[in-house]
Simulated assay, not measured.
Amino acid sequence: MDVPLELSSYTRVLKLASTPDREEFSQVALIAGAGILLVGLMGFTIFVVMNALPP
């Protein structure tokens, strides 16, 4: 485990990284929110179906 080599690769990645602009951030947030809602809806649907079935 070569620590100086790892640190230099981390700094290289951080130099290449840039902050997203407002449009890109809002698009990513919208897609992530839609994914969260979809997973929650699927979970709720499974919950309702499991409660509707007779024991």
Rank of each mutant, 00 (worst) to 15 (best):
R22T: 01
F44A: 09
G40W: 03
F25S: 06
V39D: 05
E23A: 00
L38R: 06
G33A: 07
R22W: 04
V28H: 07
L30N: 10
A32I: 10
S18Y: 00
S26M: 11
M42W: 11
Q27C: 01
E23K: 03
K15E: 14
A29N: 04
G33I: 04
G33W: 01
F44S: 08
D2C: 03
V48F: 02
E6G: 12
F47E: 08
A34W: 10
M50T: 09
M42T: 13
T45G: 08
N51F: 08
G40L: 06
I36Q: 08
L30V: 04
A29R: 00
S9I: 07
P54G: 10
L30P: 00
V13L: 15
E24M: 02
L7T: 11
E6L: 15
D2Q: 01
M42P: 01
K15T: 12
G40I: 02
E24R: 00
E23V: 02
L7F: 11
G43F: 09
I36G: 05
I36F: 07
G35H: 06
G40K: 04
R12I: 05
L38V: 01
D2R: 02
M1F: 15
D21Q: 01
E6M: 15
T11P: 02
R22G: 00
N51P: 05
A34L: 15
M1C: 13
L53C: 08
V49P: 02
T45K: 04
L5Y: 01
V49L: 09
G40H: 05
M42A: 15
M1H: 15
M42D: 11
L38K: 00
S26K: 09
F47P: 01
T11K: 11
F25R: 02
R12P: 03
R12C: 06
L53W: 05
D21R: 08
V13F: 14
F47D: 11
Y10N: 13
V28G: 06
E6C: 13
E23L: 03
K15N: 14
T19V: 14
M50R: 13
M42C: 15
A29V: 05
G40T: 03
P54F: 08
R12L: 08
V3T: 15
E24T: 05
A17T: 09
L41V: 03
L7S: 12
V49T: 07
I31A: 12
R12K: 12
G33R: 05
E24F: 02
V48H: 05
M50Q: 11
G33K: 04
E23R: 00
L16C: 15
M42R: 12
R22I: 05
V28W: 10
V39L: 01
E24D: 02
L53M: 12
K15F: 12
F47G: 09
L14W: 04
Y10T: 13
T19D: 10
F47Q: 10
D21V: 05
P55Y: 09
M42I: 15
G35P: 03
F25A: 00
D2G: 02
T19S: 12
E6V: 15
V3K: 13
L38A: 08
I46Y: 06
F44Q: 03
N51E: 06
R22A: 07
Y10D: 13
